[in-house]
Simulated assay, not measured.
Amino acid sequence: MQAIVDFILEVDKLKAVTRKIRLRDSERYENSAEHSWQLALLATSLAPHAPAGIDMDRVVRMLLVHDIGEIDTGDTMAFVEDGWEQRKAAELAAVRRIFGLLPASEGDPLLALWQEFEEARTPEAVFANAVDRAMPVLLNLANQGQSWRENGISHERVVRRVGPPIEAGCPALWRYLEDRLAQAREREFFGA
């Protein structure tokens, strides 16, 4: 029991990891725990648009653990294009440490879910990655491009970073977002 308590108190630190985007209609920036929770709800809401046969329970569990490494590394904005190899190596070390707080019978399956998400090869991981890439777009659209403008992110960079994974995992969601991103460009929501 103590290992579980130690683990859950360690992951409480995810609430203190500030992301680069504000909550809708708020001056406060979201944290990584809120992000993971919202992704789980978005994924279940998108279930009718998910590929046939998707194990939604697995997707939700994947989304709940996908940012655990940020406890040690902090958040990286989804639209950053450089330094991903070093970033992912640091996150892997972090999740090994954090999931290692649990007995192997409990920690190893969580590490496997994290790695499955990162590799994005299974239908569940491809769908989970689509959901993860979509949420910052949805918040930026709701916030008139707040983090895009603040960080000099262009329309082209957003489409390049999020378009392929969203289209691969949830084509209906990409069709929806593609149109809204074009409208956002016309409304000057982008920073470059």
Results as ranks from 00 to 15, higher is better:
D72I: 04
T44V: 15
A40P: 00
S32P: 04
S45C: 08
W174F: 06
F117C: 02
E124V: 05
G74C: 10
E186V: 07
A90E: 12
R22Y: 05
A172F: 04
A50N: 06
N140W: 03
R58M: 14
S26T: 13
D25P: 05
R97L: 09
K13I: 14
W174H: 04
A112P: 03
L64W: 08
A52S: 15
V60N: 12
D25E: 15
Q144G: 09
D179K: 14
I98Y: 08
R161I: 07
E119H: 12
D6L: 00
V60H: 11
G107T: 11
R96T: 13
G169I: 03
W84S: 03
V158P: 00
S105G: 15
L92N: 07
V131W: 04
A16D: 14
L63N: 07
L141D: 00
A112T: 13
G107M: 05
M62G: 02
A168R: 14
Q144E: 13
A172E: 11
V162Y: 00
A33M: 11
Q2G: 09
K88Y: 11
D108P: 04
L39D: 01
L42Q: 05
V162I: 12
S147V: 12
V80P: 00
E124A: 06
N143K: 01
V17F: 05
I68G: 00
F117Y: 12
M77Q: 11
L141A: 00
I71W: 05
I71D: 01
L23G: 07
R149I: 15
A128N: 06
R97N: 10
A128P: 01
W174K: 03
V17M: 08
N31Q: 04
V11A: 01
N151I: 03
G100M: 08
T122G: 09
S105D: 13
L113R: 06
E188P: 00
I8K: 13
N151S: 04
P165G: 07
E106H: 10
L173P: 06
G100V: 09
L110C: 11
E186G: 08
R97W: 07
D108V: 15
M62W: 06
D82L: 09
L14T: 02
V17H: 04
E119C: 09
F127G: 04
V95S: 05
A3K: 10
D67R: 12
R61T: 07
R58A: 14
A33C: 07
F190C: 02
F99S: 01
A94V: 02
D75Q: 14
V60A: 14
E167I: 10
F190R: 00
L101H: 10
Y176L: 15
H155N: 07
E118A: 09
A104W: 08
D75F: 14
A168Q: 12
Q146K: 08
D132T: 06
V95P: 01
